[in-house]
Amino acid sequence: MKLDVGTIRSNMDGFNSIARIGKETQNMNLGSVRWDFSRCSFFEANMAAPLYVVIARLRNELNDVSVYNVSSGIERILKKNNFLTVFNMTSLPDNNQTTLPFKIFKLHAGEQFYDYLESYMNGRGIPRMTDALTKRFRQSLVEIFLNASIHSDSKSGIFACGQFFPQKHRLDFTIADAGIGIRENVRRYTRKRKMSSCAAINWALTEGNTTKTGNHPGGLGLKLIKDFIRINKGKLQIVSRYGYYEFSSRGASVQKMDYDFRGTSVNIEINTQDTSSYCLKSELSSDDIF
């Protein structure tokens, strides 16, 4: 089977294209699929993580996946971020240090994920940012990773990669999984079997709401990330099944996609020139906390 891979950017069209590819190959097993990149004029490297969701599902069904007609420019980008190694192609050194390479993590490898961030955010991979920004960014990514660990039930692990766009002073980092999705988690928890993907994402973003089991509170992680993104003037995208959520300084929106993205992908785009302190209140003492 041959399939066109169009241009893939970090926007609704890009996620819809990836979901379409997944839909067209959904019932394949023991087959072979070739992805034609001839109509792909641009591929934002962080989108390798959600694209791998489709690959993981195909490979789980013992399908062969290969790529062809990849332009030299796109091939260079995807070799620099190690993505093409999943097709047994060699990688290229990232001399400009603009990538946080594509990596597959086991579901409960939170500490390894932290080490990965530490390794690529200390003078490698991304630009110099303030300590406060670096800390909030890492905290946000670790929260997202741990959310995926706990909720996704992904059999293939968690996929991550990031890309710095120097001229825009923007850094995109995407964490994706081929798990059950937010909709299924929320449906199970609320017992509302017909809740839509968009409604489920809205539910999950409501402060205090969590599908975690166990007698402890939760539901703060995504709210904290939104607060961070608001101050940073960045962007947050959450894609899960048919739901596409985007939050930026222009506001928040949830839209239904044309195709089913069978997993969850969270993309954070930050403004790397931000100099905010992220310490909003005056000094809190221990006595103020409890």
């Binding site: 017909k194 809740m195 968009c198 409604a199 402060e207 205090g208 509170p217 239904k256």
Partner: peptide
């Protein structure tokens, strides 16, 4: 801590109040 105080004051409050759309 503030979130936890609210949670334990009414652990199922958010869920009961939710009337999300269906599709």
């Amino acid at each position: 801590v503030d979130n936890a105080k609210k949670y334990y004051a009414n652990p199922k409050g958010y869920d009961a109040a939710w009337h999300g759309e269906e599709d």
